[in-house]
Design a protein around this nucleic acid. Structure first.
Lengths: 213, 213
DNA sequence: TTGTTATCTTGACAGCGTCAACATATGCTT
DNA sequence: AAGCATATGTTGACGCTGTCAAGATAACAA
C-alpha cells in the first residue's frame, strides 16, 4: 500500500518506471530523516512513502549506506554555502565575523539536528564507509576552517602562539561539542545557546578594532 | 548453541537457574559493547554468549534500554572515581590540575570509546529514556564540573568575568567535542591528542603560581 | 525489429526486540 | 514436610529490518 501518489507519465497514467526515482528518494529521505532520525529511517518505509517496492531503491543506491552518504553530501554542500555567505560579508570586524560564524555553525546543527548527526556522526565516519563523493564534499569544510584560523591568527584575533592546526581542531571541537550536546538531548534548555556561543567567542578571541580582510 | 560454559551448580552439574545472571549479563554486555559498539550489541548475541535463551535477560532488565542504562551507569561511576582521584591530588598548581583533568577526560573517552558513546550519546538522552538510577549517577558529574569551574574562577585560573554556568558549558563542550571527533572517527590521527588538549588548556586558563587549594 | 540494458517487482532469508505461554526451581507459610 | 507463590528459565511467534535472487517490464541502441 503506497502512501504517496503512484508514479505517472506525462499523460497522468501510471507507468512501470518512475522516471525520477533517485532524486525523489533523496528528497523523501531528507524529510524522513528530519522526522525520525537515522534510526527511524528505513529503506522500506522510504520506498513505501515514495510509492515503489522495497527493493526499487537498490537500483539507485548500492545499499543503505550509499543513500545516507548522498544525504550527508547535500548537507555539506548546503552548510558550505551558509559558511561562504558569512565569510564573504564585507565591512565586519574580524571578531564579529567569527562570532557570526560560530553562531551560524550551531544554528545549522540546531536547525538540522538529524542531518548534522548524519554528517558528523559515527554511522558514516567510524565505520569508514564514506563514499568518495561524500569525502570530496566534506573535506573542503574541514580545510576551510584551518585556512580561516590561520587568517584570524594573522589578524591578531586569535593567539598566534598556538599551532594553527591544533587551534582549529580545538575551536572546531568546541563548536562540535556544543552542537552535539544540544542535538543529542544533553543540553535540554535551548534558551542559552546564544549566551554559550558568545562565551566561547570571548574565550577564543581578543578584541581588535582594525578590519584587515 | 551456547558459546559459553553452561551454568553449573557447586557440584558442577548443569542447573536450570543461573544464579548470578544479572551481573553476568552486565559483564558480558560490557565486553560485547567494547567489541562491537552499541549497534552490534544485540540481546540475542548477549544471551547466546552467556549461554541462556534469548528471553532470559528480560527477567533482569525490562528491555534493551534498561540494560544499556545499567551499563552507562557503571561508566559514570568509574569516570567519577577517576575524576575524584585527579581532583584530590595535593600540591599541584591549579593549571596543572586542570590540565590533568582535561587529559583524563579525553583519555577516558579514548580508552572506552563505545562506553563513552553510550554514556553521552543520543541513544539514551535524546530518546529521553534514561532510568532514574542512571540520572542519579550522571548528574553529579555534570554538577561537579560546574562547582570546579566556580572554584577555578575564584582562583584566578579562569576568567571571572564570564558566567560560571556558561563557562563550564563551553569548557565541557570542548572536551566533549574533541572526545567525539576522536571516537567517531573524524580525527583519525590520534598522535596529536595531547597537543590538542594542551592547546585547549592554554586557551582556557591563565598562568598563576599560587596554590590556593 | 531485435537484442541489450536499465528499472521495477515479488519471494525469500537471517537477524533484531519483544510478547505470550509454558516449565522448573526456589523459598516462604502453614 | 507439604503446598503454594514467586522468581527465573524456556520455546514459539510476530512484525520489523537490510538485502539477495529471480523474474517482469520498459527504454534504448543496433
Amino acid at each position: 500500500m503506497s502512501q504517496q501518489t503512484a508514479k505517472k507519465t506525462k499523460q497522468n497514467k501510471p507507468s512501470y518506471h518512475h522516471g525520477d526515482l533517485r532524486s525523489t528518494l533523496l528528497n523523501a529521505a531528507n524529510a524522513l530523516l528530519r522526522e525520525t532520525g537515522i534510526e527511524g529511517l528505513s529503506l522500506r518505509k522510504l520506498a513505501d512513502k515514495v510509492g515503489v517496492s522495497r527493493t526499487a531503491p537498490y537500483h539507485h543506491f548500492k545499499d543503505k549506506n550509499q543513500l545516507l552518504c548522498a544525504i550527508a553530501e547535500q548537507g555539506f554542500v548546503r552548510w558550505h554555502q551558509d559558511a561562504e555567505f558569512i565569510f564573504n560579508q564585507k565591512g565586519l570586524l574580524p571578531q564579529e565575523k567569527y562570532r557570526q560564524f560560530f553562531h551560524g555553525y550551531i544554528s545549522y546543527a540546531a536547525d538540522n539536528p538529524e542531518l548534522y548527526d548524519l554528517m558528523f556522526g559515527r554511522t558514516i565516519w567510524k565505520q569508514n564507509s564514506a563514499t568518495e563523493e561524500l569525502r570530496k564534499a566534506a573535506f573542503p569544510s574541514f580545510h576551510h576552517q584551518v585556512e580561516m584560523t590561520k587568517k584570524w591568527q594573522a589578524q591578531g584575533l586569535m593567539p598566534s602562539g598556538e599551532d594553527t592546526l591544533r587551534l582549529s581542531q580545538v575551536t572546531w571541537g568546541t563548536m562540535h561539542g556544543i552542537a552535539r550536546l544540544l542535538i543529542d538531548g544533553i543540553y535540554a534548555d535551548r534558551s542559552h545557546i546564544d549566551a554559550m556561543c558568545d562565551c566561547a567567542v570571548n574565550l577564543f578571541t581578543q578584541h581588535i578594532s582594525e578590519v584587515k580582510g
